[in-house]
């Protein structure tokens, strides 16, 4: 079924593109709505036929995986949900994979957000990942949701020296001192790994500048593809690894699946979305070629 879907996708889209290539040879431009139809097909057909590809983690993704994997069991990992619903389809697979991996390794996980929307996203992650896949994990012992505080990087500036100056309670109003997971935690400096998932401001960059660097704490991240190039200057010294866009998420999910067979049946939206992304990229490239052909033909005709 997978192969049949792939063949049908290529035939439908390929035939259409060939038609427009022939028109381009006559110097004709393609209307915007035609491009929209092809992109619509390119993203929907792979979803309908569940087209997926094999993924292999690149070094920048592998570095994050290895860090979580090599931390001693029971290490303290903080995941910051620094994104909103608009970015969620692209970066949520990363935050869920980080959460899944950290809990599977037996780390203690602290959830928070520098974005107001992060609090709801963290709550959803607890419900969809922790409660379903790790029912044995206890809130306040194995994981905690600290929620959102206003102030962007100002929040980091404070919690790098004292978490309780910003967070007296968790998101549900429970006194932090009554939660066993907070024993021995004074500031971010007591964390073994900081992970920010997002792609805007405040985000990974602020975590590096206001927490990772001053506190000498390892920082890893997951970012929307459009923001990833801006973070490369920090890699690998200040940012130990980065998942860029759906491709990064798919690579991480593949790595997780390879080493943890129990996750073979868990949702892998990153891997699933690589089908539509691959085909959409191909369609965009085809239209760039078509556009250039019609451009050169038209220029030659003009003399």
């Amino acid at each position: 079924m997978n192969n049949l879907g792939l063949i049908i996708s290529f035939l439908v889209i390929g035939a259409g593109l060939l038609w427009f290539l022939l028109r381009a040879l006559q110097g004709k431009e393609v209307e915007r709505r035609i491009i929209f139809v092809f992109i619509g097909l390119a993203v929907s057909v792979p979803i309908l036929f569940s087209i997926t590809f094999a993924e292999k983690a690149s070094p920048i993704v592998k570095a994050v995986y290895d860090k979580i994997e090599n931390l001693p069991d029971g290490s303290r990992v903080l995941i910051s949900y620094d994104y909103g619903p608009s970015m969620a389809p692209e970066v949520e697979p990363m935050s869920n994979a980080f959460l899944r991996h950290s809990l599977a390794k037996g780390h203690k996980v602290y959830l928070m957000g520098l974005w107001a929307t992060g609090q709801s996203i963290a709550a959803t992650a607890i419900d969809s990942v922790v409660r379903r896949e790790f029912p044995e994990k206890v809130y306040g012992v194995d994981f905690v949701n600290l929620g959102y505080k206003a102030g962007n990087q100002g929040v980091l500036n404070v919690i790098i020296t004292d978490i309780r100056k910003m967070y007296l309670t968790d998101v549900g109003g429970i006194d932090l001192d009554s939660l066993p997971i907070m024993d021995g935690i004074k500031s971010l400096r007591n964390m073994n790994l900081l992970m920010s998932v997002g792609g805007g401001f405040p985000g990974i960059k602020e975590w590096i500048q206001f927490a990772g660097d001053p506190g000498h704490i390892p920082v890893a991240g997951g970012s929307a593809a459009v923001s990833a190039p801006l973070l490369y200057p920090y890699y690998p010294t200040q940012l130990l690894g980065l998942l860029g866009g759906i491709k990064g998420a798919a690579e991480y999910e593949a790595e997780l699946k390879r080493h943890y067979p129990q996750f073979a049946d868990t949702p892998q939206p990153g891997i699933k979305m690589m089908g539509p992304q691959t085909l959409a990229h191909l369609v965009i490239m085809a239209f760039i070629i078509i556009g250039n052909i019609s451009f050169f033909v038209a220029r030659r005709r003009r003399g």
């Binding site: 929209f36 970015m87 969620a88 050169f296």
Partner: peptide
């Protein structure tokens, strides 16, 4: 929010077709 962001794919494709000319 996700739908709004998804629309970007269509506009990126259209913009690439028009902008990426040698």
């Amino acid at each position: 929010g996700a739908s709004m962001y998804a629309l970007l794919a269509f506009y990126v494709a259209s913009a690439s077709y028009r902008a990426f000319r040698a």
